[in-house]
Design a protein around this nucleic acid. Structure first.
Lengths: 330, 330
DNA sequence: ACTTTGTAGTTAAACGTTTAATCGCAAGTA
DNA sequence: TACTTGCGATTAAACGTTTAACTACAAAGT
């Protein structure tokens, strides 16, 4: 036995004005005579009227929600991105419509296509190669992508992976490491930048790089590959992981195997997830500023949605976070 | 120079049928003669027609999105809840409209009120006391709450906090601990259940309980309160934390102060966040099944939205996860 | 042959807003 | 006085669907 939800027409009738007047009043789009203003205010309060945003969206073509497609919300790196994005969205009066593609590229297309009609714009964190992204442009909504893109007319936001990787590799060399390995995740578009920068830096010092590849960017996978890396003839003296999750998993497994960290092997990762600070040794990492990236992406996107001129991309400076997981071997 | 988006009317005109026919066709609501079916299929493909869900929502009153209000997405416990909720929502063809209240109860009301008109139902994780939740019921949408509620007509989903707390306290006693402390977070509705169960269990063994209270359920706060707990005349031999985040922070700070874990003090938490497994010692915790809770809440909510008879609440069994952070003092 | 039943498709009225165009009126201007 | 200007308020047409009620017609039953 619910009372029917009052419409703008009910308000107009009760206040003795037209619906247009009520609409303009609610949207603060005009000045009003004192009498009318008082009456409408009163009636709205009495009836408990609240504008129906769906109906408004039909006319204005704006929904005040933004689609956010993420690879895995439970990955703390992406969680931070979401957090930053959501903060900015909320500040501007937008809500996030969340999609989690669960690291499965096949899910992205149907989910994004369905999403596109319900939002004003989309922030997309994807594993789809840039060359296969054509259909996304047909979606007809403003978009911003996570991660560096080569095409210059598509907006993106990214940390400077190359620079961060270089900083880290340089530091390892300076600390006297000579047998450095990289545990990558080649399905990610960002992996190749990191790998290239590391390799280049080491080559500059005449050092080789052993590369391993993980099947998922997860702690579990880091644990799994540990024995393959450590139980060979001579294991590396330092390991750079594609991300902190993998590094955490690797460290745990290595310790379980009886290795001492960082004496037997130094470990480092990317992302600076919160939990890297709580292991022993604490994890050295490249902070790519996840939350700021999310926020910057949202600023960019909302700028485009609201038609304000804005840059097409935004590269944020990384920071090397030094903690106990890297030994000094000099 | 964008081409205008085709409407159902464009399709109807091009196919030589009425809009009603097209509508029924896309919703699979009727059988059609072979000719009509073929024509419509063809025209839809040619024009690239996609139904506008906003317009449909106006009529049906259904949006196929569900509001999820969360205290802090970046808290791994809630991240898991979101993950589980989102999985089930997606399975049923719903999207989550996310709201993050940032542990600030004052933000909840305006955000939820705005949200309520755009969704079919809401899953609310709140810090608002049950006695002040009246206005939420006026929102006129199906709702499910996170955490135990006393009122029996409001649907909720929760882990069995009392049972989990009892299991943990009992284990500590069995392992020979006699000076047990609790680091709580009294702003949470769930804190009091845990505290009560622990106190009751210890009282049964004639043991006292020292209670501390944190200002936030965060690792940082766990670090901050460490010295107050450990540097007194004689510190506890075991500490139960309101959640794993606080436990992680506490452990780190205690180790920094020179204490050895678990020899000097045993530590345990709640939630079984992934990262408790990667510290040294690894964290003993009560797994309240965050992800299953999120999923169960969504099942319950969707059941109510779609008018299927369902239970009003769902209590999920906790599990004690024993790891290295608890010593054997017998 | 006449009625009934069932089915494929149409008509037209919603749903609850926004907004361009218009209007009436009072105040200001020439 | 007559003409303009500005402003508060109205009119009515959208926006893109769904759906109850209806129609036309063919097949089946009597």
């Amino acid at each position: 036995m619910k009372k029917p939800i009052p419409t703008i027409r009910d308000v107009a009738a009760a206040a003795g004005v037209s619906t247009a007047t009520v609409s303009k009043f609610v949207n603060g789009a005009q000045r009003f005579s004192a009498g009318v203003e008082a009456t409408i205010t009163q009636v709205i309060a009495d009836l408990g009227y609240r504008s129906n945003p769906l109906a408004a969206s039909m006319i204005t073509g704006r929904t005040r929600s933004i689609g956010l497609s993420v690879l895995d919300v439970a990955n703390p790196h992406f969680t931070s991105v979401v957090k930053g994005a959501n903060r900015v969205a909320q500040q501007h009066g937008y809500n996030l419509l969340l999609v989690d593609t669960d690291e499965n590229p096949d899910r992205e297309r149907p989910l994004l296509e369905a999403l596109s009609r319900r939002v004003d714009g989309m922030f997309v964190i994807s594993r789809i190669p840039e060359s296969e992204m054509g259909w996304m442009m047909e979606l007809g909504k403003p978009m911003v992508f996570f991660g560096h893109l080569a095409q210059h007319d598509i907006p993106w936001v990214a940390g400077d992976d190359r620079r961060g990787a270089r900083m880290l590799a340089r530091h390892l060399v300076a600390q006297g490491h000579r047998k450095i390995a990289y545990l990558g995740f080649s399905k990610s578009r960002r992996d190749e930048e990191r790998l290239a920068a590391i390799r280049e830096c080491l080559a500059g010092h005449g050092l080789p790089l052993v590369v391993h590849d993980a099947g998922a960017p997860s702690a579990r996978e880091g644990e799994r590959v540990c024995s393959a890396i450590m139980l060979g003839a001579d294991h590396p003296d330092a390991l750079i992981c594609y991300n902190d999750l993998m590094a955490l998993g690797f460290m745990k497994a290595a310790q379980t195997l009886g290795f001492r960290l960082p004496d037997d092997i130094s470990v480092a990762g990317f992302d600076n997830i919160q939990f890297g600070a709580y292991t022993s040794p604490a994890l050295t990492t490249v902070d790519l500023q996840s939350e700021r990236l999310g926020a910057a992406a949202m600023e960019l996107l909302i700028g485009r949605i609201e038609g304000k001129p804005a840059a097409t991309f935004n590269m944020i400076e990384p920071q090397l976070i030094l903690r106990g997981s890297i030994a000094n071997r000099v």
